[in-house]
């Protein structure tokens, strides 16, 4: 069932994302060409406009990637469409999984597409050399700071943190929307309130946690190795824990407290 849910979820979202990627691709080429030609006089506005349009398409992708997280979940599950989705012969957690996975994939894809397109506009042989030098300098500085082992750990944890953090961002939206639908008649308002409420609580808990840790590990916090060895692992652990809570909360509300209008 999950594979079918995924198929239809991709179908419902690809119709929004793929055209945007295509637009970005075209504007990347246009901007690259516009920037490479020497315009004279008033024609100078051409590269300015091309770059502006290009920037706008990047913003559009970023916005739509985020909107997809919210709207696919809210509209497809909490409005009239919910009558269709919640009477499918699936378990409620499969609905969450399909939305989560597809949102995650589109957000990662958008990041990769944007990075690639920036290279597409900017990359020339000299600039690539510059980029390579910069990258090597960055790595060697990291190595100096952390030592080889801690640096690999740092980079690995950094990637994990990004992934867990993205999932965290998605799930906090899901649980907020799920909590919001408990407020019959004020579902959207309820969702916003829940989002702010949950966000605030998490902020406070995290602050308290790090102050406590700061006191406990007073000495080692000042050393750079504390980042990969203490701060990142704890942050990742904390995010994973909240992920589990958000997921469980959303599924609990779907299973026991669903109240479609």
């Amino acid at each position: 069932m999950l594979s079918k849910l995924l198929k239809h979820e991709f179908k419902a979202t690809a119709r929004l994302m793929l055209p945007l990627y295509l637009v970005l691709c075209v504007l990347t080429i246009v901007d690259r060409i516009a920037l490479s030609i020497e315009f004279k006089g008033a024609l100078n506005v051409i590269p300015v406009f091309a770059t502006f349009a290009y920037g706008l398409s990047i913003v559009a992708i970023a916005v739509v990637s985020f909107v997809i997280i919210v709207l696919r979940f809210y509209k497809n599950l909490m409005t009239d469409e919910g009558y269709l989705m919640f009477t499918l012969p699936t378990k409620s957690h499969q609905l969450i999984n399909s939305k989560l996975l597809v949102s995650f994939v589109w957000n990662i894809a958008s990041i990769l597409v944007i990075i690639l397109s920036i290279f597409g506009v900017m990359a020339t042989p000299d600039r690539m050399d510059l980029f390579r030098d910069g990258y090597q300098m960055f790595i060697s500085e990291l190595k100096q700071e952390f030592g080889a082992f801690n640096m690999s750990l740092f980079l690995f944890e950094f990637i994990v943190l990004m992934i867990v953090g993205l999932i965290n961002n998605i799930l906090i939206i899901y649980v907020s929307i799920a909590v919001g639908q408990l407020f019959n008649g004020h579902k959207v308002l309820g969702s916003f309130a829940a989002y702010i409420g949950i966000g605030t609580v998490i902020q406070i808990v995290m602050t308290v946690l790090f102050i406590t840790l700061g006191v406990l590990f007073n000495k080692s916090f000042s050393e750079s190795s504390s980042v990969p060895q203490i701060i990142f692992p704890i942050t990742i652990g904390f995010l994973l824990l909240t992920n589990v809570l958000y997921y469980w909360g959303t599924d609990f509300i779907f299973k026991r407290k669903l109240n479609l209008e």
């Binding site: 419902a12 497809n76 469409e81 009558y83 269709l84 009477t87 012969p89 378990k91």
Partner: peptide, 20 residues
């Protein structure tokens, strides 16, 4: 649950098909 949803065909009072 999923097993009963397989054998129940439900027409709600809503227009529930996505408009796209």
């Amino acid at each position: 649950g999923p097993e009963t949803k397989k054998i129940v065909s439900y027409l709600p009072e809503k227009t529930y098909l996505p408009d796209w």
